[in-house]
């Protein structure tokens, strides 16, 4: 898949967010239970996003004794950006799954969960380091 194909696919996906009636125009309506499961997955991702955004606020409010101003701002902004990425991914994945179910195609796969897991792991390790350094010093 070339870069241009990927860009085209991305543009199509964003267009689908805003004109979802196009999704309903194709294929067959799946069992409503599958659509509800898809909706719950969407909500689970939204809660993940909320947790990341709330974590960003918490870092800024509760780590004042441990971190310098800039370390705090960087960490908080990274968490907030993670929350935004999760939110956009949630709606994108929801639309793509719904379309795949209507077409009877395979559900979309993505490396987003792995990337998110790595980000959270890096932040967790950073926090452990901060606590240990603070405890030693």
């Amino acid at each position: 898949m070339s870069v241009f194909d990927q860009l085209g696919a991305g543009r199509d996906a964003v267009r689908l967010w805003f004109t979802p009636s196009r999704v309903q125009g194709e294929g067959e309506t799946p069992d409503y239970r599958f659509s509800l499961a898809n909706e719950r997955t969407f909500l689970a991702w939204i809660r993940t996003a909320l947790a990341l955004i709330g974590g960003g606020f918490a870092v800024d409010q509760f780590l004042t004794d441990h971190l310098t101003h800039w370390a705090r701002v960087t960490l908080a902004l990274a968490l907030l950006a993670g929350g935004v990425a999760c939110t956009l991914r949630a709606v994108n994945h929801w639309v793509r799954c719904e379309r795949a179910m209507r077409r009877g195609a395979d559900l979309p796969v993505s490396r987003f969960p792995a990337v998110l897991a790595l980000l959270v792991a890096v932040i967790a390790v950073a926090m452990v380091a901060v606590v240990l350094v603070g405890w030693a010093g």
Binding site: F18, P20, S35, L36, G56, L80, G83, V84, V91
Partner: peptide, 28 residues
């Protein structure tokens, strides 16, 4: 029940983005 209206899904996304942008503005 029918499919979640896409307008609702987008409104949820807008709420999240508002919180995140608000957070970024305050933290900055």
């Amino acid at each position: 029940p029918g499919l979640l209206p896409a307008a609702s899904a987008l409104a949820v996304v807008v709420c999240m983005l508002a919180l995140a942008v608000f957070g970024a503005a305050v933290v900055w």
